[in-house]
Every structure is written in structure tokens, then in C-alpha cells.
Amino acid sequence: MDETVVFKDRFEFEGILRAIKKYKITYMPVSPPLVMAFTKSELTKKYDLNLIMFLRSGGAPLGKEVTERFKEKFSTVELIQGYGLTETGGGATKVIGPEEAGRYGSVGRIAENMEGKIVDPETSEKLPPRWRGELWLRGPTVMKGYVRDEKATAEILDSEGWLKTGDICYFDSEGFLYVVDRLKELIKYKAYQVPPAELEHLLHSHPEIVDAAVVPYPDEEAGQIPMAYVVKNPGSNITEAQIMDFIAEQVAPYKKIRRVAFITSITRTPAGKILRRKLINHSLSHGLSKL
């Protein structure tokens, strides 16, 4: 069967939509920000996204709320998440069929040639289903190590060949994997750990918010507090207090967003990952009054 691959030299949202229509694209690898754009942008009314049969999202966790809103708008498009690392030689999980794709928020089950377990990041003790911890992977496609960097190799690979992914995840009772956040990005609020991605998923579910990112902000009493950078819909009058209340109604008290800054766009990599360090440095060096 012949297949055609379409490449774009740079990302431009309406250009992506034009290409879908022009080339009748049926499959796309995407990142969560593009899924959100499909869901919220009015531009999609000018183009027929139902030409697409299949979207595979990767690069960052895709929230259940965003997935549900996408499916409401594009019911015929199959949207699934994938998970893998450069160090695993590609995909480490797989989703098979519409039923598994309907488990919104999951990246599927561990692939046939891979082993996976969740461990306590402090003790390396294996954790049971539904317990959150660091995902470790082992299999024939896992790298042997970093070239000419024994120190970095020893930090990520143990003596039994387990790769420490640095991702906080959990398995459900049926073996489906859910990615929570990066271990190094957890916000340390008093004695608690707050995953930014969880709060970002909730922010993305708000109809007046185009995009959002959550970063740690230093606090004398708590150590760190969750701070949200928010991109509003054009014409929206949503306030900082309304955003904080929106989140507070849905999370435990220690997860509440306690600072909000409005911004014109969230800095991301070409693959869609949030450049948190830039946002953290911005918050510390500029202060909210200059945002």
C-alpha cells in the first residue's frame, strides 16, 4: 500500500489545517498543545478535521478532560496517547483498538518486548497498582548507555538493566499505564508533592483558557507554591481569583494554585513541551507586576 508523508518546515496552526484539507491527511502524530488547539480554535470550522482517522499524542501527558472535549467535537477521530523515550529506542507502551483508546488519560499497556514497574523514588521499592512512583523500564530495545558518559549512564541504568525514566506514573489494576508528571518537576508544597501537569489539565478544561503552565514559586512558609501562567481567550475577562477558585473546587487544599499571571503565550519546545525553566526564571526576575 502506498503512503504519503507530509512535512512542514515550521509550525503554524492554520497551515497545519490547510495541509490536512489539501492532502486529505488521515493520520497525525501530535503533541497535547495541538490537541488543545484543535479543540478550542474557531479556525477548525473552516476545515474538515474529520478527514483524520487517527491521532497519536505524545511528548507530554494528555489530560482526560482535554481528550473528552476533543472527542465531543471530533467524534469520528480516534485519539490515543503513546509513551516512549529516546533511551528505549521508541515506543514503550501500546494501545490496541477503540476500547483501549477509550481509556482516556492512559498511554496503554507495556509493549510485548518491555518490562515495567513503579518504584518509590527514595527507596527503589516496587509499588502496587494505583500507587504513584517512578516508572522503570527494561527490555532489549533499552540503550546500553550514553556514549563516553559513564556517570550519566550509572545514574539512569541500574545493575539489572532497569532504566529509570524520571517520570511519575502508576498502573491501574488491569495494567494500563498513566503518566502523572516528571519527577524533577514536582512542586514541593510543605510536606506534599504537587504535579504541575495535573493542574494544567484542569486549567485547559476551562473554556476561557487557551493555554496554561504551572511552575513552582518560592514561599517562605511553604517552601514552594503552585503558580499558574495563563493564556486567556481573546476578549475573556476571567480574573486571577476566578482561576484560583476554579482549581480550588476540584483539588485537595495543598494542590491549590496560589498565584496567577496572564501571559500572551506559553514558551514550549517544537515538540510541545513546556519550557518551565524559562517561566520560573521569568517569574523570579520580573515579578508579577511586569507580566
Score class of each variant (00 low, 15 high):
74 F>G: 08
75 S>F: 03
75 S>A: 14
76 T>I: 05
77 V>P: 12
78 E>Y: 14
78 E>L: 15
80 I>Y: 12
80 I>K: 12
81 Q>M: 15
83 Y>S: 06
84 G>H: 06
85 L>F: 14
85 L>K: 07
85 L>H: 12
85 L>W: 08
86 T>R: 07
89 G>P: 11
90 G>H: 09
91 G>I: 03
91 G>S: 15
92 A>Y: 00
93 T>R: 10
93 T>A: 08
94 K>T: 09
94 K>R: 15
95 V>R: 07
96 I>C: 06
98 P>K: 05
98 P>R: 11
99 E>I: 10
101 A>D: 01
104 Y>N: 13
105 G>C: 07
106 S>V: 07
107 V>N: 03
108 G>L: 03
108 G>W: 00
110 I>N: 02
112 E>Q: 05
114 M>F: 13
116 G>H: 07
117 K>Y: 08
118 I>V: 10
119 V>R: 01
120 D>F: 09
120 D>G: 03
122 E>W: 05
123 T>M: 03
123 T>Q: 02
124 S>F: 09
124 S>Q: 12
126 K>I: 15
128 P>W: 03
129 P>R: 04
130 R>M: 12
131 W>K: 15
131 W>E: 15
132 R>I: 12
137 L>V: 06
141 T>L: 03
142 V>L: 07
144 K>P: 08
145 G>H: 00
145 G>W: 03
149 D>F: 11
152 A>S: 15
153 T>K: 10
155 E>T: 06
156 I>H: 09
156 I>F: 02
156 I>W: 00
157 L>T: 04
157 L>C: 04
158 D>R: 05
159 S>W: 12
165 T>W: 00
165 T>R: 01
166 G>D: 14
167 D>P: 14
169 C>N: 08
169 C>T: 11
172 D>Y: 07
172 D>C: 09
172 D>W: 13
175 G>L: 11
176 F>C: 04
176 F>L: 06
179 V>W: 07
184 K>I: 10
187 I>Q: 05
188 K>T: 09
189 Y>H: 13
189 Y>M: 01
192 Y>F: 15
194 V>N: 09
198 E>K: 12
198 E>A: 09
200 E>Y: 01
200 E>I: 03
205 S>W: 08
205 S>R: 00
206 H>F: 13
206 H>A: 11
207 P>S: 10
207 P>C: 05
207 P>K: 10
207 P>Y: 10
208 E>G: 06
209 I>R: 01
209 I>W: 04
210 V>H: 00
212 A>F: 06
212 A>R: 06
213 A>Q: 02
213 A>P: 10
213 A>T: 04
214 V>P: 03
215 V>R: 00
216 P>W: 00
216 P>C: 02
216 P>N: 05
217 Y>A: 04
219 D>L: 08
220 E>C: 03
220 E>S: 15
220 E>D: 13
